[in-house]
């Protein structure tokens, strides 16, 4: 037993220094030198002002903006200090009620649109911070956004077209639209008139 204690203590201490201090400090130093913007959270700036992170979604429920995935974080949606999913099971009545309420809100904001609603627009994301929606979910909202802003629908559609990101390396992941980026571009479009 005693012959085991010294190696156990010394090796644990050595690995604590090596993997608990040297390793993260080394990775931080190299990462911040090589990828400074990424390491700090891929922040999006408007001049000096931080308007968000490219990777973290923001809450939108105004008809003038594209809406993102529903979010289950508390006490407000897209709380990036406490990520959380809904963890509702597929047969839970609470899931059906929540989805029904979201459908009602989408229909109320866009009464003329009778199309089936893309599933990602009425289901919460895993993180509660999902920055993306599917292209289908973005196109679903084009008419509403254009009407609320009295913009030409074709221009808004073209804006969505230019924000659709393809699969990475051609095979990985899904096609998607970054909602914050799209809404920032929309604001830009509206600010420049026309």
């Amino acid at each position: 037993m005693k012959s085991l204690l010294r190696p156990a203590l010394v090796l644990l201490a050595s690995f604590t220094i090596l993997t608990g201090v040297v390793y993260p400090v080394l990775v931080t130093a190299v990462a911040q030198a090589a990828f400074p913007a990424r390491a700090h959270g891929s922040l999006v700036r408007d001049g000096e002002r931080v308007v968000g992170s490219e990777l973290i979604g923001q809450p939108f429920d105004d008809p003038r903006f594209f809406w993102g995935r529903p979010s289950a974080t508390a006490p407000y949606p897209y709380n990036a200090a406490a990520s959380s999913g809904s963890n509702l099971g597929p047969t839970n009545p609470a899931l059906r009620d929540a989805v029904s309420a979201r459908i009602a809100a989408l229909r109320a904001a866009d009464p003329g649109n009778g199309a089936a609603i893309p599933v990602d627009l009425v289901t919460t994301s895993g993180s509660g911070l999902d920055p993306h929606i599917s292209p289908a979910a973005a196109y679903f909202q084009v008419a509403r956004v254009a009407r609320a802003r009295t913009l030409d629908e074709a221009r808004v559609r073209a804006l969505v077209d230019s924000h659709v990101e393809g699969r990475m390396l051609g095979v990985l992941g899904e096609r998607r639209v970054n909602v914050l980026r799209l809404n920032l571009a929309l604001e830009e479009l509206a600010r420049n008139g026309i």
Binding site: V119, D120, S125, D130
Partner: peptide, 11 residues
């Protein structure tokens, strides 16, 4: 235009 399927709790 979308992956579809059971998207509750997925990114």
């Amino acid at each position: 235009l979308m992956p579809g399927g059971n998207m509750e709790g997925k990114e």
